[in-house]
Design a protein around this nucleic acid. Sequence first.
DNA 1: TGCGCATATGTCGTCAGGTGACATATGTTG
DNA 2: CAACATATGTCACCTGACGACATATGCGCA
Lengths: 121, 121
Amino acid sequence: MTQRVMQEPTLLLLTALADEPRHGYAITQEIRKISDGQVTMRTGTLYGALERLLKQGLIEVHREEVVDGRLRRVYTLSDTGRERLEAEAERLAATAREASRRLGAFSSQATGSPRTSAATA
Amino acid sequence: MTQRVMQEPTLLLLTALADEPRHGYAITQEIRKISDGQVTMRTGTLYGALERLLKQGLIEVHREEVVDGRLRRVYTLSDTGRERLEAEAERLAATAREASRRLGAFSSQATGSPRTSAATA
DNA sequence: TGCGCATATGTCGTCAGGTGACATATGTTG
DNA sequence: CAACATATGTCACCTGACGACATATGCGCA
């Protein structure tokens, strides 16, 4: 099946829906909070992603409410989305761990020249 | 500077160079190992990424050797690349942690197998 | 009264980066 | 000698993120 690896903005979006349902604008605010102010999801990314994730069944429309005469859609994680987010988070953590481990492994042997010394040129 | 967030294949590539210098094909094999057999980096991604990362100064040509009459380039992480990888790994870990935390917060009220119990009104 | 800002949803063109298919060449093994 | 691992490389295509723009309401304040 080899599905494409989820990108971070998408992952942040799903994370923003992990604890409770939210509507679009609230999601952008939540993402800013999650990323400690580092990531501002533009509406172009947001609404495109929402549509895509709906189609993929990772999120669902929790309810629709009318506020000030305008339709507001509140989204929620689907069961599939929840499972997927769990898997992605785990995989991401593993990748990050491995990167840190290797970086640490290197710095521990300090400036040791790589085993394979210059073999011609 | 608002640089684009690094994608996972790129991060895996840098990780594959974190402990010791490697040439292209060795990198793909290492990535497979790192990802526990889940990610196979195609040559299209690989050589494109290598060129890009060279241009960005995140990796360097460690040495060039001639094997079987063919040029083989061995790449290594630059100091910048090492710092960048550290930062990315940290950020990734934080994101993954936050996702898990929120998922956990939710599942604490609905622990057990993810049932399709649509309690959502 | 109206100006700017936060809130709020949405569209569209552009672009970076990843994917998959293809090309090419040597060494090894059955 | 066929098939496969090793090895480097190109290219067209597509997805998804980005940035700019459009639009509309409520609210504070000058």
